[in-house]
Write a protein that binds this DNA or RNA. Structure first.
Lengths: 145, 145
DNA sequence: CTTTACAATTTAACACGTTAACTATAATCT
DNA sequence: AGATTATAGTTAACGTGTTAAATTGTAAAG
């Protein structure tokens, strides 16, 4: 049997955790989880997103997103309103305080990302992205399983 | 600001999910989560592991492992006994039913892994492993942050 | 115009990830 | 030996991942 360490999901997980460790402490200082940060960041890029769109942008399943939005709303970082044309839809926006927070966190976050790029090497990082993308594409192309 | 998609943790997560999708359905048929499967697999390789050792092997934090072991024990897939020399330590082993399960699942699991290797290409897979390892090593080497 | 089907979102239920606090046992120190 | 400290493991509390079911609003069919 293939050795235990030779596990692709495991390697991907470990790599992800290594990278996240560089970001999480900084986010935690502002009481944000990586997922909450993703939501704020997505809303900063595109103001006024519906739940479904936000879910896709952030790569979060609806139930997770639903909870996250409730949390962020209760902290007044975002606000929501019901769509005029379809009352099922809610439209999420950054609140003033949310904008403020993104502006504070984003630069530091960018700096850390730049630092990782430098540490690992730009070329290698590009290569890694390409390989990961290709892996996804090839596996997904097989959805006939 | 860097575009949203250009996120290393996100890319790693997506890749991981793509890969896992190939394994999870099969595991679910046997009511096993990927983590539970990791534990069974580790115990199949090395009979009689302490919680700490198992935790390291499976890359699971102790609280998670603690719950998983309780679950698997209640399902009679594993058994535990207290160490003779140190009563704090428990030693986990595969129970008969657990061994049976591993023998059923492992071959199918291996086949799926082989299939992924073929789909993605052996060389690329090796390269990916190397890059991921190197990323971890380089980031970890910086634990001075 | 009502019954039915569908769509957007939430809730429920369970497992895991994570940090911190806690329990029990072992090792160390004076 | 007796107090202190360290170690193995569990429990608690909270957020997220995931599947299924429930809720509510909209659209479609009869």
């Amino acid at each position: 049997m293939r050795e235990f360490e030779r596990s692709l999901p495991m390697s991907l997980l470990k790599a992800r955790e290594s990278v996240m460790k560089k970001f999480i402490p900084h986010l935690r200082e502002h009481d944000l989880s990586p997922q909450q940060w993703r939501v704020l960041r997505a809303l900063y890029e595109t103001e006024g997103l519906e739940m479904s769109a936000l879910s896709e942008q952030c790569f979060l399943l609806m139930p997770s997103l639903s909870r996250i939005v409730q949390n962020l709303e209760s902290r007044q970082l975002i606000s929501r309103r019901t769509s005029d044309i379809d009352q099922r839809r809610s439209i999420i926006s950054l609140a003033k305080e949310g904008i403020r927070l993104v502006k504070i966190i984003a630069p530091e976050s960018e700096a850390r990302y730049a630092h990782i790029t430098e540490t690992f090497g730009y070329g290698k990082l590009e290569l890694l992205y390409e390989l990961l993308d290709e892996l996804v594409v090839k596996l997904e192309a097989e959805e006939k399983n």
